[in-house]
Amino acid sequence: MSVNVPAAAPSTHRRALITWLAIYPTVTVVLGLIGPATARLPLLVRTLILTAIVVPVAAYLLIPALMKANAVLARR
Rank of each mutant, 00 (worst) to 15 (best):
M1G: 01
M1L: 00
M1I: 00
M1E: 04
S2T: 04
N4A: 05
V5H: 08
V5M: 09
P6L: 03
P6W: 02
P6H: 06
A7N: 05
A7K: 04
A7R: 07
A8V: 05
P10F: 00
P10C: 01
P10K: 03
S11R: 02
S11E: 01
S11V: 02
S11M: 00
T12G: 13
T12Q: 14
T12R: 13
T12D: 14
T12M: 13
H13M: 11
H13D: 10
R14E: 13
R14G: 01
R14W: 06
R15D: 07
R15P: 00
A16F: 14
A16H: 15
L17P: 05
I18E: 00
T19L: 15
T19R: 15
L21P: 14
L21M: 15
A22M: 14
I23Y: 14
I23D: 13
Y24N: 10
Y24C: 10
Y24G: 09
P25H: 09
T26S: 11
T26C: 12
V27S: 05
T28A: 13
V29H: 11
V30I: 12
V30L: 09
L31R: 13
G32A: 13
G32P: 05
I34P: 01
G35V: 04
G35K: 07
A37P: 04
A37E: 05
A37G: 06
T38F: 00
A39K: 04
A39R: 06
A39T: 03
P42S: 05
L43Y: 11
L44M: 08
L44A: 08
L44E: 10
L44W: 09
V45E: 06
V45S: 06
R46S: 02
R46K: 03
T47M: 08
L48S: 06
L48C: 06
L50N: 01
T51W: 13
A52Q: 10
I53V: 14
I53A: 03
I53P: 00
V54K: 00
V54R: 00
V54G: 02
V54I: 14
V55T: 11
V55D: 12
P56L: 12
V57T: 10
V57E: 04
V57F: 13
A58L: 09
A58Q: 03
A58I: 08
A59C: 11
A59I: 10
Y60Q: 07
Y60F: 06
L61W: 02
L61K: 03
L62E: 10
L62D: 11
L62Q: 10
L62C: 10
I63V: 07
I63D: 02
P64Y: 04
A65S: 07
L66H: 04
L66Y: 10
M67Y: 14
K68E: 14
V72F: 06
L73I: 04
L73F: 01
A74N: 05
A74R: 01
R75I: 03
